[in-house]
């Protein structure tokens, strides 16, 4: 019996090994089986969905400021997406908002800028970057870039590490410091709310594009926001950018923002 402990360890090790290989075998067998006998049907993109190679938005700054059209854009976005109105500014959640030129384009302001641009409100939202640093930073792929260029959040997967917030050079992301539900005045049942502890931001109205609709802010902007496919040379956005000069936020960072501001 001198070796009993050793032989026990050997046997238990071997049995653990065979057990684990068994379970691996099971998984393999079942995954192989899924292709043959799965009762789950097929998923496809809806025929009415709007599709593009590279979604982008053009902001006609002057037109947007007329009659305070930007206010409607902000309001409709936050309303349909159940964005909470947090009482403490520190915990603010916002997808789209307005700010002055010197804050939206820091480093580009100078004292000789025409007054109309100094005072005019600029709409800011997620830039849906071509090379998004938030996606690079996310440790779980909870934020990811779709093949049509939209940078999205998977709220089910987000662990709330807020690395993406540190990575975003545009301050486009908000964190749910509390459960947002009590701070939503009127819940839109067509769109989920978020839970505490996850990051959120503008989704370019992915849920509306899937139904063949334009983003909500574009729809209420009376033509001041133009949304379209920059991968298509004939699209309205491509045509406008060919004719008129547009600037982007912090283009020197290489993130490739896809919101273009006409000035």
């Amino acid at each position: 019996m001198k070796n009993s402990r050793r032989s026990f360890l050997k046997i238990s090790g071997l049995s653990a090994l065979s057990l684990s290989s068994l379970s691996i075998g099971n998984v393999l067998a079942s995954s192989a089986g899924v292709t043959n006998t799965s009762p789950i049907g097929d998923a496809s993109v809806k025929p009415e969905a709007l599709q593009a190679k590279k979604w982008a938005m053009v902001v006609d700054v002057k037109k947007l400021a007329e009659n305070k059209r930007y206010e409607a854009c902000i309001e409709i976005c936050h309303k349909i997406h159940n964005v909470p109105n947090m009482p403490n500014k520190r915990h603010e959640v916002k997808w789209i908002w307005e700010d002055e030129f010197k804050h939206v384009f820091p480093g580009q302001e100078h004292e000789h800028i025409p007054d109309e641009f100094k005072e005019i409100p600029f709409l800011v939202l997620c830039n849906h970057c071509e090379n998004p640093s938030c996606v690079q930073a996310c440790p779980t792929k909870a934020t990811f870039k779709r093949d049509d260029g939209i940078v999205l959040m998977d709220f089910h997967r987000c662990i709330g590490c807020r690395f993406c917030m540190a990575a975003c050079p545009y301050g486009s992301r908000s964190f749910n410091f509390f459960d947002p539900r009590p701070f939503i005045e009127e819940v839109n049942p067509e769109f989920p709310t978020r839970m505490k502890g996850v990051v959120e931001k503008c989704n370019f109205c992915a849920e509306r594009l899937a139904k063949g609709q334009q983003p909500a802010c574009v729809e209420v902007s009376e033509g001041a926001l133009i949304f379209g496919d920059l991968g298509d040379h004939e699209s309205e956005v491509s045509q406008i950018l060919k004719k008129r000069f547009a600037i982007r936020r912090k283009p020197n960072l290489g993130s490739g923002p896809q919101i273009y501001y006409l000035v």
């Binding site: 049907g41 998923a43 496809s44 809806k46 025929p47 969905a49 779709r146």
Partner: peptide, 27 residues
Amino acid sequence: WRESVVRNKKRLYSSLDGKNYNMSLST
């Protein structure tokens, strides 16, 4: 479904008996 809708844009489900459904829990 959630992987398909959130990550792959695929929101239309065709069951094996040929019916179509909107892949959504609550909307």
